[in-house]
Computed example of a mutant assay.
Amino acid sequence: MKPTIKPAINRFDPAKEYFFEEGCYILEMANSADDPALSIARARVEPGRVTRLHTLAEQVERYVILDGEGLVEIGDALAETVTVGDVVIIPPGHPQRIRNTGESHLIFLALCTPRFRPEDYRDVDPEPPR
Rank of each mutant, 00 (worst) to 15 (best):
L111I: 10
D125H: 02
V87G: 03
I5Y: 09
Q96C: 05
G68E: 07
V84A: 11
Y18H: 08
D13R: 14
R52W: 02
F116D: 04
G102F: 06
E127Q: 15
E21V: 14
S32A: 10
R44E: 01
P7I: 06
E22W: 11
P36T: 04
A57S: 15
L27Y: 02
T101Y: 04
R97Y: 12
G70W: 04
A77I: 06
I40P: 06
L78F: 12
I74R: 03
M29K: 15
T101S: 10
R52V: 07
A37C: 05
S39H: 06
R97K: 15
G85P: 05
E22A: 13
N10W: 11
D34E: 14
R122L: 06
F20Q: 03
L66A: 05
P114E: 04
A110V: 11
K2L: 14
R11K: 14
A8N: 13
K6C: 04
D125C: 02
E103N: 13
K6M: 08
P14L: 09
G23I: 12
G93F: 05
A8L: 13
V72S: 02
R49Y: 06
P129Q: 02
A8K: 11
Y63Q: 07
I26L: 10
A8E: 13
L38N: 06
I40H: 02
E69R: 11
I107R: 14
I65G: 08
P114R: 07
P47K: 03
Q59C: 05
P95H: 07
I98Y: 03
V50C: 13
R11F: 11
D35T: 15
E58L: 12
L38C: 12
R44G: 00
G48T: 05
F19G: 00
I65N: 05
V64S: 11
G68W: 04
R52G: 01
E58I: 01
T113N: 06
G48K: 02
S32T: 14
Y18K: 10
P47R: 00
R122D: 04
E127I: 00
E46M: 15
T55K: 08
T51F: 03
R62P: 00
N31S: 12
L71M: 12
R115H: 09
